[in-house]
Write a protein that binds this DNA or RNA. Structure first.
Lengths: 134, 134
DNA sequence: CTGTATCCACAATGATACTG
DNA sequence: CAGTATCATTGTGGATACAG
């Protein structure tokens, strides 16, 4: 059961979601969980072709929040390494739980979607009515 | 440590995030976790003044995914009740874990942000985070 | 009361070019 | 290689009017 002592303050759930709800933050955490990676490595590792701009923004935000540590080697050419902090690693646990849930229930969700789409096919005015790809 | 067997397929984390990453889905799950609620009740219960449009869209998506059950009473005036399904309740645990993490580490994150902002306010960066320049 | 359809504002993302 | 700046595009959310 979820308790909200301060509904006006959005009870803390929003906090975590805002931090992970963007398109790439989770992937950065995931790809950094095995260990340190350089900027370019991170970019290549993340699925979906993240742009330099978005990787920079995402990684900066995570650094600001203390989830990621950024180490600059003032060499030529430049070399920057990223790694999870303690805080970041504590999140990894949670992200994994989320992934596990998603994987475990994906079939059920796919079935539900298919059923919903079938039941609403006659009206045909709902939003994204597409079959899943799982 | 998070394993991704199919990096190209976005390894399942994206799935869960896409489902909860929008602005309101989590709140619907939270407010429904104590029990059944009507449309208007849900709208009033959710912090942040969700519009009819967004509540409808959010609730429809959750229904399609099988997280929420929608019951229509063909009366006048209409009455529609929403409740979590088994699947939805299984998510509740996860959402709570997320909230707990957020609450537990909020001070640390706030401190990190303050430090980051201070270090980047004037353009100067007295970061001790660097290695040798070899 | 519940829900749909339109129009509009803004934030997030992506593509590209340029700099150190 | 790493990062910034700019511009175009998209998606998401909000306000409102209308319908069952």
């Amino acid at each position: 059961m979820i308790e909200c002592e301060t509904p006006q303050d959005e009870c803390g759930v929003r906090d975590a979601l805002d931090r992970l709800g963007d398109k790439w933050s989770v992937y950065v955490v995931v790809e950094l969980s095995p260990g340190t990676k350089r900027f370019k490595e991170l970019q290549r590792a993340i699925p979906g072709n993240i742009s330099q701009r978005m990787l920079t923004l995402t990684v900066r935000r995570l650094e600001r929040d203390g989830l990621v540590k950024r180490t600059v080697y003032p060499t030529v050419p430049p070399k920057v390494e990223y790694e999870l902090t303690e805080l970041g690693r504590s999140l990894t646990h949670l992200v994994k739980a989320l992934a596990d849930w998603s994987i475990a229930h994906r079939p059920a969700i796919a079935a539900s979607r298919a059923a919903w789409d079938a039941a609403h096919a006659d009206g045909a005015h709902a939003d994204g009515a597409h079959a899943d790809g799982a």
